[in-house]
Design a protein around this nucleic acid. Structure first.
Length: 499
RNA sequence: GCCCCCAUCGUCUAGCGGUCCAGGACGCCGCCCUUUCAAGGCGGUAGCACGGGUUCGAACCCCGUUGGGGGCACCA
Protein backbone atom coordinates (compact mmCIF):
# COMPACT_ATOMS: atom_id res chain seq x y z
CA UNK A 1 0.00 0.00 0.00
CA UNK A 2 2.81 2.40 0.71
CA UNK A 3 5.46 2.91 -1.87
CA UNK A 4 9.00 3.89 -1.04
CA UNK A 5 9.21 5.98 -4.16
CA UNK A 6 9.15 9.72 -3.61
CA UNK A 7 8.69 11.60 -6.82
CA UNK A 8 8.80 15.34 -6.41
CA UNK A 9 5.31 16.75 -6.27
CA UNK A 10 3.97 17.59 -9.71
CA UNK A 11 1.85 20.46 -8.44
CA UNK A 12 4.67 22.38 -6.80
CA UNK A 13 6.09 22.11 -3.35
CA UNK A 14 3.97 23.18 -0.41
CA UNK A 15 5.62 23.10 2.99
CA UNK A 16 4.26 24.14 6.31
CA UNK A 17 5.26 25.22 9.76
CA UNK A 18 2.71 24.36 12.41
CA UNK A 19 3.74 25.11 15.97
CA UNK A 20 1.46 25.15 18.94
CA UNK A 21 1.48 28.44 20.83
CA UNK A 22 2.61 27.21 24.19
CA UNK A 23 5.35 29.08 25.97
CA UNK A 24 8.56 30.32 24.51
CA UNK A 25 9.95 29.87 21.04
CA UNK A 26 12.58 27.19 20.94
CA UNK A 27 15.64 27.49 18.67
CA UNK A 28 14.96 24.00 17.33
CA UNK A 29 11.51 25.13 16.35
CA UNK A 30 12.92 28.11 14.47
CA UNK A 31 15.39 25.86 12.70
CA UNK A 32 12.47 23.70 11.54
CA UNK A 33 10.65 26.79 10.33
CA UNK A 34 13.74 28.02 8.52
CA UNK A 35 14.25 24.74 6.68
CA UNK A 36 10.63 24.48 5.63
CA UNK A 37 10.71 28.06 4.44
CA UNK A 38 14.00 27.64 2.61
CA UNK A 39 12.79 24.47 0.95
CA UNK A 40 9.66 26.21 -0.27
CA UNK A 41 11.55 29.27 -1.47
CA UNK A 42 14.26 27.24 -3.16
CA UNK A 43 11.74 25.23 -5.13
CA UNK A 44 9.53 28.19 -5.91
CA UNK A 45 6.85 26.58 -3.79
CA UNK A 46 4.51 27.76 -1.08
CA UNK A 47 5.14 28.14 2.62
CA UNK A 48 2.09 27.65 4.81
CA UNK A 49 1.93 28.74 8.42
CA UNK A 50 -0.65 27.06 10.61
CA UNK A 51 -1.26 27.37 14.31
CA UNK A 52 -2.01 24.20 16.21
CA UNK A 53 -3.94 25.59 19.10
CA UNK A 54 -6.15 22.69 20.05
CA UNK A 55 -4.99 22.57 23.62
CA UNK A 56 -6.87 25.40 25.25
CA UNK A 57 -5.28 24.71 28.60
CA UNK A 58 -1.76 25.37 27.41
CA UNK A 59 -2.19 27.70 24.47
CA UNK A 60 -1.99 31.44 24.89
CA UNK A 61 -2.62 34.45 22.73
CA UNK A 62 0.66 36.00 23.84
CA UNK A 63 2.55 32.98 22.71
CA UNK A 64 0.70 33.06 19.41
CA UNK A 65 1.67 36.69 18.76
CA UNK A 66 5.19 35.98 19.81
CA UNK A 67 5.46 33.17 17.30
CA UNK A 68 4.45 35.44 14.43
CA UNK A 69 6.87 38.05 15.69
CA UNK A 70 9.76 35.60 15.77
CA UNK A 71 9.16 34.37 12.25
CA UNK A 72 8.98 37.92 10.97
CA UNK A 73 12.12 38.86 12.81
CA UNK A 74 14.00 35.99 11.20
CA UNK A 75 12.66 37.07 7.84
CA UNK A 76 10.50 34.02 7.23
CA UNK A 77 7.45 35.23 5.39
CA UNK A 78 4.53 32.93 4.83
CA UNK A 79 2.30 32.74 1.78
CA UNK A 80 -0.71 31.40 3.61
CA UNK A 81 -1.54 31.59 7.27
CA UNK A 82 -2.54 33.88 10.11
CA UNK A 83 -2.87 37.57 9.21
CA UNK A 84 -2.23 36.69 5.60
CA UNK A 85 -5.10 34.39 4.78
CA UNK A 86 -5.20 31.99 1.89
CA UNK A 87 -7.51 29.56 0.12
CA UNK A 88 -7.31 26.81 2.73
CA UNK A 89 -8.15 28.70 5.89
CA UNK A 90 -8.79 29.10 8.65
CA UNK A 91 -5.19 28.55 9.65
CA UNK A 92 -5.78 28.14 13.34
CA UNK A 93 -6.92 24.73 14.40
CA UNK A 94 -9.10 26.17 17.10
CA UNK A 95 -11.29 27.44 14.28
CA UNK A 96 -11.48 24.17 12.41
CA UNK A 97 -13.46 21.91 14.72
CA UNK A 98 -16.21 21.35 12.19
CA UNK A 99 -13.72 20.06 9.67
CA UNK A 100 -12.38 17.44 12.04
CA UNK A 101 -15.84 16.33 13.08
CA UNK A 102 -16.84 15.78 9.48
CA UNK A 103 -13.73 13.92 8.49
CA UNK A 104 -13.98 11.72 11.55
CA UNK A 105 -17.55 10.83 10.65
CA UNK A 106 -16.52 9.95 7.10
CA UNK A 107 -13.69 7.77 8.31
CA UNK A 108 -16.08 5.95 10.61
CA UNK A 109 -18.68 5.51 7.87
CA UNK A 110 -16.09 4.15 5.45
CA UNK A 111 -14.90 1.63 8.00
CA UNK A 112 -11.39 3.03 8.31
CA UNK A 113 -12.08 4.03 11.85
CA UNK A 114 -14.07 2.32 14.53
CA UNK A 115 -15.43 2.96 17.98
CA UNK A 116 -13.38 1.57 20.81
CA UNK A 117 -14.58 1.19 24.39
CA UNK A 118 -11.63 -0.42 26.15
CA UNK A 119 -10.14 1.46 29.04
CA UNK A 120 -6.40 1.54 29.59
CA UNK A 121 -6.84 -0.66 32.62
CA UNK A 122 -8.65 -3.27 30.61
CA UNK A 123 -6.02 -3.27 27.88
CA UNK A 124 -3.30 -3.62 30.50
CA UNK A 125 -5.09 -6.49 32.15
CA UNK A 126 -5.52 -8.31 28.87
CA UNK A 127 -1.86 -7.89 28.01
CA UNK A 128 -0.79 -9.23 31.38
CA UNK A 129 -3.20 -12.10 31.19
CA UNK A 130 -1.65 -13.04 27.86
CA UNK A 131 1.78 -12.86 29.42
CA UNK A 132 2.71 -9.78 27.42
CA UNK A 133 4.30 -6.48 28.31
CA UNK A 134 1.56 -3.92 28.94
CA UNK A 135 3.78 -1.37 27.24
CA UNK A 136 2.76 -2.97 23.96
CA UNK A 137 -0.31 -0.80 24.30
CA UNK A 138 -3.72 -1.20 22.83
CA UNK A 139 -4.45 -4.67 21.46
CA UNK A 140 -6.97 -3.86 18.71
CA UNK A 141 -9.53 -5.82 20.69
CA UNK A 142 -12.46 -3.60 19.77
CA UNK A 143 -12.02 -3.88 16.03
CA UNK A 144 -15.10 -5.97 15.41
CA UNK A 145 -17.51 -5.22 18.17
CA UNK A 146 -21.10 -6.06 17.35
CA UNK A 147 -23.82 -3.47 17.60
CA UNK A 148 -25.13 -5.27 20.65
CA UNK A 149 -21.77 -5.10 22.38
CA UNK A 150 -21.43 -1.40 21.61
CA UNK A 151 -24.90 -0.76 22.93
CA UNK A 152 -24.06 -2.61 26.11
CA UNK A 153 -20.99 -0.45 26.65
CA UNK A 154 -23.00 2.68 26.05
CA UNK A 155 -25.53 1.51 28.57
CA UNK A 156 -22.70 1.40 31.07
CA UNK A 157 -22.19 5.05 30.32
CA UNK A 158 -19.01 4.58 28.31
CA UNK A 159 -18.06 7.06 25.60
CA UNK A 160 -16.09 5.42 22.79
CA UNK A 161 -12.91 6.82 21.32
CA UNK A 162 -12.44 6.64 17.57
CA UNK A 163 -9.49 4.56 16.42
CA UNK A 164 -7.91 4.13 13.02
CA UNK A 165 -7.74 0.59 11.72
CA UNK A 166 -4.06 0.04 10.92
CA UNK A 167 -3.32 -1.90 7.75
CA UNK A 168 -1.74 -5.32 7.90
CA UNK A 169 1.32 -4.34 5.93
CA UNK A 170 4.75 -2.87 6.50
CA UNK A 171 4.71 0.89 6.64
CA UNK A 172 7.55 2.26 4.55
CA UNK A 173 8.58 5.61 3.25
CA UNK A 174 11.65 7.22 1.78
CA UNK A 175 12.58 9.95 4.17
CA UNK A 176 13.92 13.09 2.50
CA UNK A 177 16.83 13.20 4.91
CA UNK A 178 17.19 9.58 6.02
CA UNK A 179 16.31 7.39 3.09
CA UNK A 180 14.08 4.35 3.47
CA UNK A 181 12.52 3.82 6.88
CA UNK A 182 10.41 0.77 7.59
CA UNK A 183 8.09 -0.27 10.39
CA UNK A 184 6.94 -3.87 10.39
CA UNK A 185 3.29 -4.70 9.94
CA UNK A 186 1.54 -5.06 13.26
CA UNK A 187 4.08 -3.02 15.19
CA UNK A 188 1.81 -0.03 15.48
CA UNK A 189 -1.53 -0.48 17.23
CA UNK A 190 -4.75 1.17 16.14
CA UNK A 191 -4.44 4.67 17.53
CA UNK A 192 -6.95 7.16 18.79
CA UNK A 193 -8.20 9.85 16.42
CA UNK A 194 -10.91 11.35 18.55
CA UNK A 195 -11.31 11.28 22.29
CA UNK A 196 -14.34 9.95 24.12
CA UNK A 197 -15.46 13.51 24.73
CA UNK A 198 -15.31 14.27 21.03
CA UNK A 199 -12.04 16.21 21.05
CA UNK A 200 -9.88 15.37 18.03
CA UNK A 201 -6.24 14.55 18.75
CA UNK A 202 -3.04 15.84 17.25
CA UNK A 203 -2.17 12.64 15.27
CA UNK A 204 -5.49 13.09 13.55
CA UNK A 205 -5.88 16.82 13.03
CA UNK A 206 -2.31 17.37 11.88
CA UNK A 207 -2.50 15.09 8.82
CA UNK A 208 -6.07 16.16 8.10
CA UNK A 209 -4.99 19.78 7.91
CA UNK A 210 -1.91 18.94 5.91
CA UNK A 211 -4.06 17.02 3.46
CA UNK A 212 -6.67 19.76 3.19
CA UNK A 213 -4.00 22.41 2.78
CA UNK A 214 -2.31 20.42 0.06
CA UNK A 215 0.99 20.03 1.88
CA UNK A 216 3.40 18.05 -0.26
CA UNK A 217 6.55 18.06 1.87
CA UNK A 218 6.60 17.68 5.61
CA UNK A 219 9.87 18.66 7.27
CA UNK A 220 9.68 18.17 11.02
CA UNK A 221 11.64 17.15 14.02
CA UNK A 222 13.08 13.70 14.41
CA UNK A 223 10.91 13.22 17.48
CA UNK A 224 7.94 12.79 15.17
CA UNK A 225 9.55 10.04 13.15
CA UNK A 226 8.02 7.18 15.14
CA UNK A 227 4.56 8.57 14.53
CA UNK A 228 5.01 8.56 10.78
CA UNK A 229 3.72 5.02 10.18
CA UNK A 230 0.44 6.05 11.78
CA UNK A 231 0.26 9.07 9.55
CA UNK A 232 0.96 6.98 6.51
CA UNK A 233 -2.00 4.76 7.40
CA UNK A 234 -4.18 7.77 8.05
CA UNK A 235 -3.21 9.30 4.73
CA UNK A 236 -4.15 6.12 2.93
CA UNK A 237 -7.56 6.24 4.57
CA UNK A 238 -7.96 9.97 3.88
CA UNK A 239 -7.01 9.44 0.27
CA UNK A 240 -9.53 6.63 0.02
CA UNK A 241 -12.36 8.85 1.18
CA UNK A 242 -11.22 11.72 -1.02
CA UNK A 243 -10.00 14.08 1.68
CA UNK A 244 -6.34 13.73 0.72
CA UNK A 245 -4.81 13.70 -2.74
CA UNK A 246 -2.08 11.32 -1.65
CA UNK A 247 0.68 11.05 0.89
CA UNK A 248 3.21 13.84 1.33
CA UNK A 249 6.93 13.31 1.42
CA UNK A 250 8.48 13.36 4.86
CA UNK A 251 11.84 14.62 5.98
CA UNK A 252 12.85 14.23 9.60
CA UNK A 253 15.26 16.88 10.74
CA UNK A 254 17.91 15.98 13.31
CA UNK A 255 17.66 17.20 16.86
CA UNK A 256 19.27 20.34 18.08
CA UNK A 257 21.00 19.38 21.29
CA UNK A 258 22.48 21.35 24.15
CA UNK A 259 25.30 20.53 26.50
CA UNK A 260 25.62 16.79 26.72
CA UNK A 261 23.70 15.13 23.96
CA UNK A 262 20.18 15.61 25.15
CA UNK A 263 17.85 17.44 22.90
CA UNK A 264 17.56 21.06 23.91
CA UNK A 265 14.72 21.12 26.35
CA UNK A 266 12.41 24.02 26.91
CA UNK A 267 13.90 24.28 30.35
CA UNK A 268 17.34 25.01 28.98
CA UNK A 269 17.81 28.79 28.89
CA UNK A 270 19.95 28.35 25.80
CA UNK A 271 16.94 27.07 23.91
CA UNK A 272 14.96 30.28 24.15
CA UNK A 273 15.25 32.16 20.87
CA UNK A 274 14.38 35.44 22.59
CA UNK A 275 17.67 35.66 24.38
CA UNK A 276 19.57 35.82 21.10
CA UNK A 277 17.36 38.47 19.73
CA UNK A 278 17.57 40.48 22.90
CA UNK A 279 21.33 40.27 22.94
CA UNK A 280 21.35 41.69 19.48
CA UNK A 281 21.96 38.79 17.18
CA UNK A 282 21.23 39.88 13.64
CA UNK A 283 18.40 37.97 11.95
CA UNK A 284 20.75 37.11 9.12
CA UNK A 285 23.45 36.00 11.47
CA UNK A 286 21.14 33.88 13.53
CA UNK A 287 19.52 32.32 10.49
CA UNK A 288 22.97 31.58 9.13
CA UNK A 289 23.94 29.75 12.27
CA UNK A 290 20.64 27.89 12.47
CA UNK A 291 21.14 26.73 8.91
CA UNK A 292 24.50 25.29 9.87
CA UNK A 293 22.77 22.99 12.31
CA UNK A 294 22.44 20.11 9.90
CA UNK A 295 23.21 21.73 6.60
CA UNK A 296 26.27 23.01 4.77
CA UNK A 297 26.30 25.36 1.83
CA UNK A 298 29.74 24.27 0.62
CA UNK A 299 32.76 22.38 1.82
CA UNK A 300 34.83 25.50 2.41
CA UNK A 301 32.35 28.14 3.51
CA UNK A 302 29.92 28.68 6.32
CA UNK A 303 29.07 32.35 6.23
CA UNK A 304 26.24 33.18 3.88
CA UNK A 305 23.14 35.29 3.53
CA UNK A 306 19.59 34.06 3.72
CA UNK A 307 19.26 34.70 0.01
CA UNK A 308 22.28 32.53 -0.66
CA UNK A 309 20.80 29.82 1.49
CA UNK A 310 17.57 29.87 -0.47
CA UNK A 311 19.54 29.64 -3.67
CA UNK A 312 21.48 26.58 -2.53
CA UNK A 313 19.19 24.79 -0.09
CA UNK A 314 18.53 21.14 -0.76
CA UNK A 315 16.66 19.11 1.86
CA UNK A 316 18.11 15.86 0.73
CA UNK A 317 21.52 17.21 1.71
CA UNK A 318 20.50 17.80 5.28
CA UNK A 319 22.52 15.73 7.71
CA UNK A 320 20.78 13.04 9.72
CA UNK A 321 22.85 13.39 12.85
CA UNK A 322 21.97 15.55 15.79
CA UNK A 323 23.65 18.94 16.02
CA UNK A 324 24.84 20.58 19.16
CA UNK A 325 23.99 24.23 19.55
CA UNK A 326 27.36 25.91 20.00
CA UNK A 327 27.04 29.43 21.30
CA UNK A 328 30.63 30.35 20.47
CA UNK A 329 30.21 29.46 16.85
CA UNK A 330 26.87 31.22 16.71
CA UNK A 331 28.57 34.33 18.04
CA UNK A 332 31.43 34.06 15.58
CA UNK A 333 29.02 33.77 12.68
CA UNK A 334 27.02 36.69 13.95
CA UNK A 335 30.10 38.84 14.44
CA UNK A 336 31.04 38.27 10.83
CA UNK A 337 27.63 39.42 9.69
CA UNK A 338 27.81 42.39 12.02
CA UNK A 339 31.12 43.54 10.60
CA UNK A 340 29.84 43.18 7.08
CA UNK A 341 26.92 45.53 7.70
CA UNK A 342 26.98 48.80 5.73
CA UNK A 343 27.61 51.77 8.03
CA UNK A 344 24.10 53.17 7.80
CA UNK A 345 22.57 49.80 8.46
CA UNK A 346 24.82 49.19 11.42
CA UNK A 347 23.88 52.54 12.86
CA UNK A 348 20.20 51.82 12.45
CA UNK A 349 20.55 48.48 14.19
CA UNK A 350 22.63 49.76 17.07
CA UNK A 351 20.59 52.83 17.93
CA UNK A 352 17.69 50.96 19.54
CA UNK A 353 20.08 49.18 21.84
CA UNK A 354 21.73 52.41 22.96
CA UNK A 355 18.38 54.07 23.34
CA UNK A 356 17.04 51.10 25.25
CA UNK A 357 19.90 51.43 27.70
CA UNK A 358 19.12 55.11 28.13
CA UNK A 359 22.42 56.22 26.62
CA UNK A 360 21.01 58.18 23.73
CA UNK A 361 17.65 59.80 23.12
CA UNK A 362 15.21 58.23 20.71
CA UNK A 363 15.81 59.62 18.19
CA UNK A 364 19.33 60.70 19.17
CA UNK A 365 20.11 64.37 19.53
CA UNK A 366 22.23 66.00 16.87
CA UNK A 367 25.30 65.83 19.06
CA UNK A 368 24.70 62.19 19.96
CA UNK A 369 24.24 61.38 16.32
CA UNK A 370 27.53 63.08 15.45
CA UNK A 371 29.43 61.10 18.06
CA UNK A 372 27.72 57.89 17.13
CA UNK A 373 28.52 58.24 13.48
CA UNK A 374 32.13 58.96 14.25
CA UNK A 375 32.62 56.03 16.58
CA UNK A 376 30.41 53.43 14.92
CA UNK A 377 32.90 52.15 12.37
CA UNK A 378 35.50 51.74 15.09
CA UNK A 379 33.09 49.91 17.35
CA UNK A 380 31.61 47.73 14.68
CA UNK A 381 34.63 45.52 14.31
CA UNK A 382 34.94 44.81 17.99
CA UNK A 383 31.41 43.70 18.66
CA UNK A 384 29.80 40.29 18.54
CA UNK A 385 26.20 41.25 19.15
CA UNK A 386 24.46 44.62 19.00
CA UNK A 387 24.05 44.92 22.73
CA UNK A 388 27.83 44.99 23.06
CA UNK A 389 27.57 48.62 21.98
CA UNK A 390 26.09 49.53 25.33
CA UNK A 391 29.17 48.54 27.26
CA UNK A 392 31.60 49.55 24.58
CA UNK A 393 30.24 53.01 23.83
CA UNK A 394 28.45 53.95 27.00
CA UNK A 395 31.32 56.13 28.20
CA UNK A 396 30.81 58.54 25.32
CA UNK A 397 27.25 59.29 26.27
CA UNK A 398 27.50 59.93 29.99
CA UNK A 399 29.04 62.66 32.08
CA UNK A 400 30.83 60.36 34.41
CA UNK A 401 32.02 56.87 33.67
CA UNK A 402 31.48 54.02 35.97
CA UNK A 403 34.84 52.33 36.19
CA UNK A 404 34.86 48.59 35.99
CA UNK A 405 36.37 47.38 39.29
CA UNK A 406 38.46 44.70 37.62
CA UNK A 407 39.79 47.21 35.12
CA UNK A 408 40.60 49.63 37.93
CA UNK A 409 42.42 46.98 39.90
CA UNK A 410 44.45 46.10 36.88
CA UNK A 411 45.31 49.52 35.56
CA UNK A 412 44.65 52.26 38.10
CA UNK A 413 46.28 51.03 41.26
CA UNK A 414 49.80 51.92 42.24
CA UNK A 415 52.32 54.69 41.76
CA UNK A 416 52.99 53.86 38.14
CA UNK A 417 49.39 54.51 37.26
CA UNK A 418 49.41 57.75 39.14
CA UNK A 419 52.49 58.87 37.32
CA UNK A 420 50.96 58.06 33.95
CA UNK A 421 47.70 59.79 34.77
CA UNK A 422 49.50 62.90 35.98
CA UNK A 423 51.65 63.05 32.90
CA UNK A 424 48.66 62.54 30.64
CA UNK A 425 46.76 65.24 32.45
CA UNK A 426 49.62 67.66 32.07
CA UNK A 427 50.04 66.88 28.41
CA UNK A 428 46.40 67.25 27.56
CA UNK A 429 45.71 70.29 29.68
CA UNK A 430 47.92 72.44 27.56
CA UNK A 431 46.72 71.05 24.27
CA UNK A 432 45.29 73.68 21.99
CA UNK A 433 44.33 71.48 19.09
CA UNK A 434 41.93 68.85 20.43
CA UNK A 435 42.12 66.42 17.54
CA UNK A 436 42.88 62.73 17.31
CA UNK A 437 46.29 63.39 15.80
CA UNK A 438 47.21 66.03 18.34
CA UNK A 439 46.03 63.90 21.25
CA UNK A 440 48.11 61.00 20.00
CA UNK A 441 51.14 63.21 19.57
CA UNK A 442 50.78 64.71 23.03
CA UNK A 443 50.25 61.42 24.80
CA UNK A 444 53.04 59.67 22.98
CA UNK A 445 55.46 62.44 23.75
CA UNK A 446 54.50 62.58 27.39
CA UNK A 447 54.11 58.91 28.17
CA UNK A 448 56.28 56.93 25.80
CA UNK A 449 59.10 59.40 25.27
CA UNK A 450 58.74 61.32 28.49
CA UNK A 451 58.23 58.49 30.95
CA UNK A 452 60.02 55.92 28.87
CA UNK A 453 57.17 53.46 29.05
CA UNK A 454 56.07 50.84 26.61
CA UNK A 455 52.87 51.77 24.84
CA UNK A 456 50.87 49.04 26.48
CA UNK A 457 51.84 50.23 29.93
CA UNK A 458 51.47 53.84 29.05
CA UNK A 459 48.01 53.77 27.58
CA UNK A 460 46.35 51.17 29.78
CA UNK A 461 45.61 53.50 32.70
CA UNK A 462 44.50 56.29 30.37
CA UNK A 463 42.11 53.97 28.61
CA UNK A 464 40.52 52.78 31.80
CA UNK A 465 40.29 56.32 33.13
CA UNK A 466 38.58 57.54 30.00
CA UNK A 467 36.36 54.60 29.06
CA UNK A 468 36.03 52.75 32.33
CA UNK A 469 37.17 49.52 30.73
CA UNK A 470 40.18 47.72 29.45
CA UNK A 471 38.41 47.20 26.15
CA UNK A 472 37.29 50.24 24.24
CA UNK A 473 37.26 51.81 20.84
CA UNK A 474 40.61 53.28 19.75
CA UNK A 475 41.87 55.63 22.43
CA UNK A 476 42.75 58.86 20.63
CA UNK A 477 39.54 58.96 18.67
CA UNK A 478 37.65 58.30 21.85
CA UNK A 479 39.36 61.16 23.60
CA UNK A 480 38.68 63.54 20.78
CA UNK A 481 35.00 62.66 20.82
CA UNK A 482 34.82 62.86 24.58
CA UNK A 483 36.16 66.40 24.56
CA UNK A 484 38.63 68.20 26.78
CA UNK A 485 36.43 68.79 29.76
CA UNK A 486 35.20 65.26 30.29
CA UNK A 487 38.58 63.77 29.50
CA UNK A 488 40.40 65.82 32.08
CA UNK A 489 37.68 65.25 34.66
CA UNK A 490 37.99 61.52 34.16
CA UNK A 491 41.73 61.54 34.45
CA UNK A 492 41.35 63.37 37.73
CA UNK A 493 38.69 61.00 38.94
CA UNK A 494 40.83 58.01 38.06
CA UNK A 495 43.75 59.58 39.88
CA UNK A 496 41.60 59.79 42.99
CA UNK A 497 40.31 56.31 42.41
CA UNK A 498 43.77 54.81 42.44
CA UNK A 499 44.62 56.60 45.71
C1' G B 1 10.97 -4.26 27.61
C1' C B 2 9.53 -3.28 22.31
C1' C B 3 10.25 -0.14 17.98
C1' C B 4 12.99 3.56 15.39
C1' C B 5 17.01 7.00 14.38
C1' C B 6 22.24 8.30 14.57
C1' A B 7 27.84 7.33 14.51
C1' U B 8 34.32 11.75 10.49
C1' C B 9 38.82 16.54 14.78
C1' G B 10 36.31 19.02 21.67
C1' U B 11 31.90 21.22 18.48
C1' C B 12 29.27 21.92 13.46
C1' U B 13 30.40 19.74 9.06
C1' A B 14 32.77 18.30 3.62
C1' G B 15 33.33 13.47 1.87
C1' C B 16 28.19 10.35 -1.95
C1' G B 17 34.37 3.27 -3.80
C1' G B 18 40.25 5.29 -6.02
C1' U B 19 41.91 12.42 -6.86
C1' C B 20 41.66 11.55 1.39
C1' C B 21 48.51 9.33 5.11
C1' A B 22 40.58 12.95 5.22
C1' G B 23 39.08 19.42 3.53
C1' G B 24 36.59 23.89 5.93
C1' A B 25 34.63 26.53 10.19
C1' C B 26 34.23 27.47 15.63
C1' G B 27 37.31 26.63 19.82
C1' C B 28 42.24 26.18 21.54
C1' C B 29 47.79 27.24 21.01
C1' G B 30 51.75 30.04 18.75
C1' C B 31 53.65 34.09 15.65
C1' C B 32 52.89 38.81 12.90
C1' C B 33 50.41 43.49 13.04
C1' U B 34 49.34 46.76 17.06
C1' U B 35 47.58 51.85 21.52
C1' U B 36 44.54 47.64 25.43
C1' C B 37 40.84 44.20 23.67
C1' A B 38 39.27 42.76 19.33
C1' A B 39 39.54 42.45 14.10
C1' G B 40 42.94 40.97 10.26
C1' G B 41 47.20 37.86 8.39
C1' C B 42 50.17 33.37 8.95
C1' G B 43 51.07 28.68 11.17
C1' G B 44 49.79 24.68 14.49
C1' U B 45 46.57 21.19 17.42
C1' A B 46 42.92 17.36 16.85
C1' G B 47 38.93 12.88 13.85
C1' C B 48 36.91 8.33 10.04
C1' A B 49 33.79 4.06 17.42
C1' C B 50 35.05 -1.38 17.05
C1' G B 51 34.89 -6.22 14.48
C1' G B 52 33.77 -8.89 10.33
C1' G B 53 32.69 -9.05 5.26
C1' U B 54 32.11 -7.30 -0.33
C1' U B 55 35.91 -5.21 -3.68
C1' C B 56 41.97 -4.87 -7.23
C1' G B 57 40.70 -0.79 -3.81
C1' A B 58 36.25 1.45 1.79
C1' A B 59 35.51 7.13 5.85
C1' C B 60 32.17 5.95 1.91
C1' C B 61 28.50 -0.52 0.44
C1' C B 62 26.60 -4.95 3.70
C1' C B 63 26.28 -7.50 8.56
C1' G B 64 27.24 -7.47 13.61
C1' U B 65 28.97 -5.17 18.23
C1' U B 66 29.41 -1.03 21.16
C1' G B 67 27.97 3.77 22.19
C1' G B 68 24.51 7.89 21.92
C1' G B 69 19.53 9.68 21.11
C1' G B 70 14.28 9.35 20.50
C1' G B 71 9.33 7.17 20.57
C1' C B 72 5.94 3.78 22.71
C1' A B 73 -1.05 8.58 25.97
C1' C B 74 -8.23 9.62 25.32
C1' C B 75 -0.30 15.59 25.20
C1' A B 76 1.26 18.33 21.09
Amino acid sequence: MTSPATPPPATGVRTRFCPSPTGMVHVGLLRTALFNWAHARHTGGTFVFRIEDTDAARDSEDSYRHLLDCLRWLGLDWDEGPEVGGPHGPYRQSERSDVYREVAAELLAAGHAYESFSTNEEVDARRRAAGQDPKLGYDNADRSLTDAQKAAFRDEGRQPVLRLRMPDADLVWTDLVRGEVRFAAGSVPDFVLVRGNGAPLYPFVNPVDDALMGITDVLRGEDLLPSTPRQLALYAALTDIGVAQGTPRFGHLPYVTGEGNKKLSKRDPQSNADVYRERGFLPEGFANYLALLGWAIADDRDVFSVAEMVEAFDVTRVSANPARFDLRKAEAINATHLRALPAEEFLAQVRPFLAGAGLVADPPTEEQDRVLRAIAPLAQERMIVLSDAVGLLGFLFTDEVEIDPAAAAKQLAGDDAAEVLDAATAALTGLTDWSTAAVEEALRTALVDGLGRKPRQAFGPVRVAVSGRTVSPPLYESIELLGRERTLARLAAARAHGG
